[in-house]
Amino acid sequence: MSPSTAAAPLLQVRNLRVEFPTRRGTLVAVDDVSFDVAPGEVLGVVGESGAGKSLTGAAIIGLLEPPGRIAGGQVILEGQRIDDLPYEQMRKIRGARIGAIFQDPLTSLNPLYSVGRQLVETIQTHLPLSAFDARARAVGLLKEVGIPGAETRVDHYPHQFSGGMRQRVVIALALCANPRLIIADEPTTALDVSIQAQIIALLKGLCREHGTAVVLVTHDMGVIAETADRVAVMYAGRLAEIGPVRDVVKNARHPYTRGLMGSIPSIGGHAERLTQIDGAMPRLTAIPSGCAFNPRCPQAGVRCSIERPDLMRAGPSRAACWLYDSAGVGAPAAREAARG
């Protein structure tokens, strides 16, 4: 599959809002997030813990854990709205059209069943194959994800595989029914650094081969830079910046993204101190008014603490920052001053 169909997005997320009702009021964990994913494209979603990136992924596959719920917006897969589907219809989409890979391969597999059984049951859930054909497909998938001796390994149990091998099995499970989209939530975080690169290369290669699009959720900017076509940066439940990966990495627009990039060590670079962003991301219960980043932003103006910026054009990317508004960061205060 070539990106010739790139015109029609595979996945559209429109103004997604995820809420957690609590006793002390409703927490908004994902707020007004919109993005598209083209067929075969890898979209990286980065952000600190609690930025809402994993919840965005969970909301797309319809697996938010209660009491979390989608409170607004739409998720559209291949032109079909899927966020409001009944459980049983959404179940048929999960695994068949959207695959998922989770963070910890050690706990993603049921310890009591052989990997072959888990593959076969997933295959037979979604494809009309006989037990024999399903098993053949399972062995084929294990070969494809690079498990040596797949014919015998298919009958082994998860505890007989190492962490990296288990994540390969998890990837095989996600690919069982050849989904058009995979949500990969921190797929390498729990692995050794040396294994991480292998798994990322495998995921990238397989998705390119199958024409599968990936939403890659991670806090690891290095993984994003290596893998993604585009990157979305999240901060406190909102998109801070979204754009082509090259542009965001080399030429970050949002002050938060710039801080994020400044904190990544580069091999062979100058031995300067890494920059860090002062302060911490606000708790969901205490998101500042205006731009959520303004208390930590070195370039904040008065406007930033009053008005919340939406995504606006900033070079080839879009950033939610008043720096890219024609009126700049001081405008509303000036207006108010004029009024007062």
Partner: peptide
């Protein structure tokens, strides 16, 4: 609450398979 049940849901298995099988 375990991850493998969540992952089984993500694989689209039926409720019966998840509740009784897994």
């Amino acid at each position: 609450r375990t991850d493998y049940i969540k992952f089984a849901r993500a694989r689209g298995l039926s409720n019966r398979a998840i509740n009784y099988g897994h």
